[in-house]
Nucleic acid binder design. Structure first.
Lengths: 175, 175
DNA sequence: AACAAAATAGTCAGTACTGACTATGATTAT
DNA sequence: ATAATCATAGTCAGTACTGACTATTTTGTT
């Protein structure tokens, strides 16, 4: 995923350095990925070694030196292949909470119930935040991106609602 | 997750070697985790180094030598702590397909539509399989485990249904 | 009896990720 | 004026995961 994001962002926004790429991801995709800065640098160097990016150095004023990365023609080709590969996406979730229940003979039911209650409240808040972000995002993106914004946000809404419904059912089944 | 599974299985089923642990996970949890054999061996050695497991060697007949791992008192304590930590579970999914849509300006709508159609059929099949496995599992587990089986399976059912609903909505919105 | 396939029991090297750390310039608060 | 905090721009070592590989035994198949 990370190389795809980097190559795509470099195409859409032009040459960038690591910190800026991280910022773009944090601003536009914070709800959907949690990519850390060292991960960005790791892949920038890797993509450079593969010839998909080239680096130039820049020293703006007396600021510390920056390494600016630009995508190459090779990089554009590789991006298209990655995207085509990803198109055959699959869905195979794993939930840490399944392990909790699998081994729940080692836990008190009361503890499970109280944690589930807290969890349900958290989920409700997250759902509210996502809905708010969706509206905010829709208010500033150009019209041609609105469909995509809706698709991505509603993907997460669906799954958070599923998680909430499961948590509520589970709470009731244990009471 | 893997250390928790290993320590839990060693408590529930007694001393085991790597391949058997893998088999237990594959039989009981195949729908929910995809832990590979080298991952098991990696953690067995790590847990041994931490003193949470002890290893004994066994040479049964003329079969190749086995390394059998048993949980220690330290290991039982660590397991309880892990489980208590996991109890504060969170939900933060990432979907590769979001990246596909985020960069969908580089794709043909027709390709998106045809892949979504295939994807929807796959999801329907997976849901049917999960429902079947749920019934099968319920038919042989002791009654006191039925609630847990239902909780874990229905967790996945909910999310697969969410994924299906999202995929169908998305397909319609792009038509 | 001979061969193939599956089960058993691992090793190892390469890939990916990230917490903790360093270091400097810019901005804000007091 | 100065201290604190934030933004910028990374490095590095440690952790985790797994594909590819090796090797033996058991079980079927012909």
């Amino acid at each position: 995923m990370v190389p795809l994001y980097i190559l795509g962002i470099l195409q859409r926004f032009g040459p960038q350095h690591g910190y800026q790429i991280k910022k773009i991801i944090a601003e536009q995709l914070a709800d959907f990925t949690q990519i850390k800065l060292p991960t960005i640098y790791y892949h920038l160097e890797k993509l450079k070694a593969e010839g998909l990016l080239v680096a130039t150095n820049e020293k703006p004023g007396n600021r510390p030196e920056k390494t600016i990365y630009s995508i190459t023609d090779e990089g554009i080709k590789a991006f298209k292949n990655m995207l085509a590969g990803l198109l055959e996406f699959e869905y195979r979730p794993t939930f840490p909470s399944d392990a909790v229940f699998y081994f729940s003979e080692h836990l008190e039911t009361a503890d499970l119930l109280s944690h589930l209650t807290v969890y349900i409240e958290k989920l409700k808040k997250v759902i509210a935040v996502i809905k708010k972000h969706k509206q905010e995002t829709l208010s500033f993106v150009p019209p041609e991106y609105k469909t995509i914004v809706i698709i991505i946000f509603s993907h997460h809404e669906h799954h958070y609602q599923a998680e909430l419904a499961w948590a509520e059912e589970t709470l009731n089944s244990l009471k």
